[in-house]
């Protein structure tokens, strides 16, 4: 197998350059422990405040990168908030909803004006609504995971992406997100984890920042104060 030989030659070359043989025994065990019991390195102060402050910081940072946020008191108010947002921005009242059990279980039927399809995103879907795995306060970042109820295309293809997030899902630092993720998906991460910080943008023409390069032009969070 030619692959094996390239592989072995590269590894042998590395060891020759570093002047040692393959790492084995106690040293290998120590490195394995470092991998299996991974600990956070330095976490910035701003990501270590009490939870209520983290939620405030999350909203502030998200708005700082042109994400918009509306807040509702309970999950039952979400359909109303989604419809309001679409109306305010003169967007069509048609949306592609993530086929997530909790999200589809919200009282969408109450908003008769909305046309709702579920599934993955297809052209020319203009608006998607998805849940999130977590929100990371330190930079106003959303953490989204792929799965049967949360196809990744919904996060990327439509021009407007709306995310429903509970305040209790907000964590301080990226590492807090990892901790949650390792607990929720022991042994194997989902195929895709998206950290999303604001709507898509580019500075490739004369360094002028423009929204909506290939991903969504608008990113809106409906935050449930649970």
């Amino acid at each position: 197998m030619p692959d094996m030989s390239s592989r072995d030659q590269i590894l042998a070359g590395i060891r020759r350059s570093l002047g040692r043989t393959k790492i084995e025994g106690e040293q290998a065990e120590a490195l394995t422990r470092r991998l299996e019991n991974s600990q956070p390195n330095l976490i910035p102060q701003r990501a270590q405040r009490p939870h209520a402050d983290q939620v405030r910081l999350f909203v502030e940072m998200a708005e700082g990168v042109q994400t918009t946020v509306s807040r509702v008191a309970s999950a039952a108010d979400v359909p109303e908030a989604v419809a309001d947002y679409l109306k305010q921005h003169n967007l069509p009242a048609e949306l592609r909803l993530a086929p997530d059990e909790w999200l589809t279980g919200l009282p969408w039927a109450r908003k008769k004006t909305l046309t709702i399809k579920t599934g993955r995103a297809e052209e020319p879907d203009a608006v998607s609504v998805t849940p999130a795995f977590a929100g990371v306060a330190e930079t106003g970042t959303l953490m989204l995971t792929s799965g049967p109820g949360t196809p990744t295309t919904l996060n990327l293809l439509p021009e407007t992406h709306m995310v429903v997030l509970k305040a209790s899902q907000v964590v301080g630092a990226y590492e807090d997100g990892w901790k949650k993720l390792r607990e929720a998906y022991p042994g194997q991460l989902p195929r895709t984890v998206n950290y999303i910080t604001g709507p898509s943008r580019t500075g490739d023409i004369e360094q002028k920042i423009l929204m909506g390069a290939h991903g969504p032009r608008r990113l809106h969070i409906v935050l449930i104060d649970d």
Binding site: T141, Q188, R191, T192, Y195, T197, G198, P199, G215
Partner: peptide
């Protein structure tokens, strides 16, 4: 933070 940091597994 950049807009998209995406992990593929």
């Amino acid at each position: 933070m950049s807009v998209y940091t995406t992990f593929s597994t």
